[in-house]
Structure formats: C-alpha cells, structure tokens
Amino acid sequence: MTPADAVIGALTVVFAGLGAFFFLVGTLGLLRLPDFFSRTHAATKCDTVGAGSLLLALALYNGLDADSLKIIAIAGLVLLTSPTSGHALARAAFRTGLVPWRKERAGEEAS
C-alpha cells in the first residue's frame, strides 16, 4: 500500500463515518423533535450532509473514473433537490398557518 492509498483510505473512512453519524442524528431528530418544522430540518440534514458525505466516500473509494463522476453528479443533484423540497415544505406549512413550536408555550398547549 502506497502512502497515497493510505490517505485515500483514511479519507474514505472519515467521510463514510461522518455520513453515518449525520444519518443517525437526522433519524433521531425526525423521531424526537417536537414539531413539523424542526423535524423537516432534521430530515433534510440526512440527505444533504449525510448522503453527500457517503457519496463522496464512495467516489473516493472507487478511484478516478467515469463511475466516480456519476456518483459526484448524484451528490450534486441531492445537494440541489433536498434543501429545495425541505424549503418548499416548511414554507407551505408556515404560510398555511402552522405555528412553530416554542419552549415557553409547550406547557400551555399540553394543558
């Protein structure tokens, strides 16, 4: 194994671990956060940072060829579309009158 291979292998592990971490955090947020807005926020983190890191790790692992270019293109597509759909969802919810959750109001609503 040449030093270059070792560096690429280490970067692959780092990015794959980062992606897995963000998917874990995003899933926890989707399950545990209090309202629609914060859950949307958590779920879109999975797609952008999580999937982005994982795809980057795959491209690094695969080396420099046409398949890696396709993987990078998919990552670019995900980076464009996922925040857009998250934005559209949150905007539609806010404009149709969904009130964001606030900590100080949490008690009143429950009672």
């Binding site: 597509l77 579309t81 857009t84 934005h87 905007r91 539609a92 404009r95």
Partner: peptide
C-alpha cells in the same frame, strides 16, 4: 394562487428541467 411560488423552487426547477 393563494401563495406565490417560492423563488428557490422556481430557480431549482428551471435549472434541473433540462436534465
């Protein structure tokens, strides 16, 4: 329409439509 289309959505759809 009750709500104007978001600038972000419009830009991204226009950008991606040919693809």
């Amino acid at each position: 329409p009750a709500m104007p289309v978001s600038m972000v959505v419009r830009f991204v759809v226009r950008l991606l439509a040919p693809f």
